[in-house]
């Protein structure tokens, strides 16, 4: 309808251990004006040295899909729980990989 809103986003990294190493997966969580009644919209924010690995939980735009988001219920669901789910899910299926270095 042409209206605009100022939204708040939280940008940071999620610590994930994969194959014995810990990685800091860059993510951005958008809090809508209806938050916390609705879940945040979450994206992986790859740096230029990374590429998105699309899969069950991440699409080509880096948008994150999780049952936790889909079944979000206030007040049981919160950002702390969401990030814990991300740590587990991304530990099994990292959403980003580093680009092969061009020699």
């Amino acid at each position: 309808d042409g209206s605009t809103k100022d939204l708040m986003s939280l940008t940071g990294t999620v610590p994930v251990s994969y194959r014995g190493n810990t990685y800091n997966i860059p993510v951005c969580l958008w809090l809508l004006d209806v938050y916390p009644y609705n879940p945040p919209i979450c994206f992986v924010k790859p740096t230029s040295a990374m590429m998105i690995k699309t899969g069950k939980h991440v699409d080509a735009n880096g948008k994150i899909y999780l049952p936790y988001l889909h079944e979000w219920k206030h007040p049981q669901s919160d950002l702390y729980g969401l990030i814990q789910v991300m740590v587990v899910v991304f530990g099994e299926e990292p959403p980003v990989f580093s680009r092969p270095q061009v020699q």
Partner: peptide, 13 residues
Amino acid sequence: KSPTPSAPVPVAE
């Protein structure tokens, strides 16, 4: 200081 983003190296499937 927030940690530097990092990602695993792709494993050749």
